[in-house]
Amino acid sequence: MALKDITLGQFFPGSSLIHRLDPRAKLIGLIAYIVALFLANGWLTYLIAFLTLALVVAVSTVKLKALLRGMKPVLFLLVFTAVLNMFYTPGTPLAKFWIFTITYEGIVHAFFMVIRILMLISATFLLTYTTSPLALTDGLESLLGPLKKVRVPVHELSMIMSIALRFIPTLIEETDKIMSAQRARGADFDTGNLIQKAKALIPLLVPLFISAFRRADELATAMECRCYHGGEGRTRMKQLHYKPGDGLFIFAALAICVGIGVLGRFGW
């Protein structure tokens, strides 16, 4: 098992308009889009939502294949939702067998539901594909900044997140090393039933945990040496600045959200 091949996050570096947007603008845009999806209520609104997404995907230069690959894990959920909606929506019956009835409304409902979930996931993936984890963390910290006033430890949370991101590759490398070391002494990670496999992980997890704690201790000392004393009085090298394009993007996202909301009210 080559643990090193695990891709970190799903960021595809690029320089498209979408890549260059401020992470906060993208986050706000995503939230507006998700709200719009839940307000969409008919063919027209879904079409608008779909075209919006298609436009953003086209501009972002993210490959369609990459987007579709992200759908695999939710395939089961999709099928499940579709089937439930088909059978359990009352309305004009189209086909009947045994105790199941498929209704016209059911099929339409199932179709919309599947489309909604697909678009929701695509939009979210689009954000992580075009925004580096670091930029995302910074964006979140900045967006949640006002919560500091009600004593939410925003800086600390974002620090935890960025350190976690930093140490994922290091810990993966270490896991690889420990696995090789344990294998060399005859450990078997790959055969046996589920319980045996889980038990085989103990000699892997114990040293990994111990080393993670030691790392945390050393890192804390190193951070102290570099004058870290919390978020108070801290400046940043790269400050986030809204550019005109970001404003335009947020405005467009909100406009689409409101538009879909209004049209949805009328059942379009």
Partner: peptide, 18 residues
Amino acid sequence: NQIVASVVEEDVAFGPEN
């Protein structure tokens, strides 16, 4: 165990930022 950030220049900036 002493590199804080996941980009080299961000890590170098950590001290001055503090």
